[in-house]
Design a protein around this nucleic acid. Structure first.
Lengths: 173, 173
DNA sequence: ATGAACTTTCAGTAATTACTGAAATCAGAT
DNA sequence: ATCTGATTTCAGTAATTACTGAAAGTTCAT
């Protein structure tokens, strides 16, 4: 039986790899998801150089993706006193991660879709032909649904963990 | 003021384009999303050739993406009697679309992630070092959350529109 | 069996997206 | 002002993903 630290590294590697694949299936890029997985399971903050080394990626790539993760609110920059370098630390609370991803995806994906739907709805408001009316009605249906999803996103995004758990129990308990 | 059919075509084009962009931001390919948008707003079934013509894409491309959409359960093949050709028709009910997408994404993305998490959890079950314990705990947290999400997906995937509305009202009303 | 109408596959190519590495820039210490 | 240790940018390149078009396959009528 191999020693524990070595086994841990192996398992962690598997996790990082799979998280990367998963990220890629969603719209997120593989490296960004891998860095996130790495930091989520790091026992301490990491520097850009450490990330570069572990994942064997270039400085530019590491830099870009670390900053993107900061943009998503999934990791934050920490500075050590006396050190000039930046270090990174991931949010580890799962509920918090979910909230931030939900908020960000809503902002980037749902909101623009909603705008288009509203345009298309408005532009066909007054149509009289059966086709025009049918199209308009489809836009109404979509807009209703997506704006509902958007509101849910807002709700969840501001909900505390405890509240969410209670709510979940009520629904699925 | 231009005539209604022409205006409708313009608006519909905008919708198709934007739906394609949205699809691309999610993991779905642009063309597939465009075809879906096209069929969702079609007043009648469409053939492969019609789709090719409207979107100006090749036969191979149209074919592949139409079949993928069938695989997602978002459109279905209809045959007209006397005609040998296949025609396609989209599910237009928004709730039904949502259910099918939820079901499919769960199957393709959530379930495999869950398997990895369970592996990583099991592989670190017995660890004694602080790092091993911390990693294990993180896997437990993630597994709990993702399996919860998975269960939600199942629930929603089998829920009827009316039930869902009532539930939503209870939560967000 | 032959052929017409249609569907499916796939090798080659185009388009898109991600990554590298080196140069430019920045910020604090001397 | 200069140097040092770091961050940021970006032109060029690599990798990935999507698309084309033509050939092969299928199905049904004759």
């Amino acid at each position: 039986m191999s020693d524990e630290p070595a086994r841990l590294e192996e398992v962690r590697d598997e996790f990082v790899t799979q998280w990367g694949i998963m990220g890629a299936q969603w719209g997120i890029n593989r490296t960004m998801a891998q860095i996130h997985a790495l930091l989520m399971t790091a026992s301490d903050v990491m520097s850009t150089d450490e990330v570069m080394e572990v994942l064997e990626i270039s400085r530019g790539n590491a830099h870009t993706n670390l900053k993107d993760l900061v943009g998503w609110g999934l990791i934050k920059i920490v500075t050590k006193k006396g050190e000039r370098k930046e270090f990174f630390e991931a949010e580890k609370d799962v509920w918090e991660i979910f909230r931030r991803v939900a908020r960000e995806r809503k902002r980037r994906e749902i909101d623009p879709a909603l705008e288009t739907l509203r345009n298309c709805k408005a532009a066909t408001e007054d149509m009289k032909t059966p086709n025009g009316k049918a199209f308009h009605e489809q836009m109404v249906q979509l807009e209703d649904f997506v704006s509902f999803a958007s509101k849910m996103g807002d709700r969840v995004g501001t909900m505390q963990h405890g509240k969410a758990i209670k709510l979940a129990m009520k629904i699925f308990g």
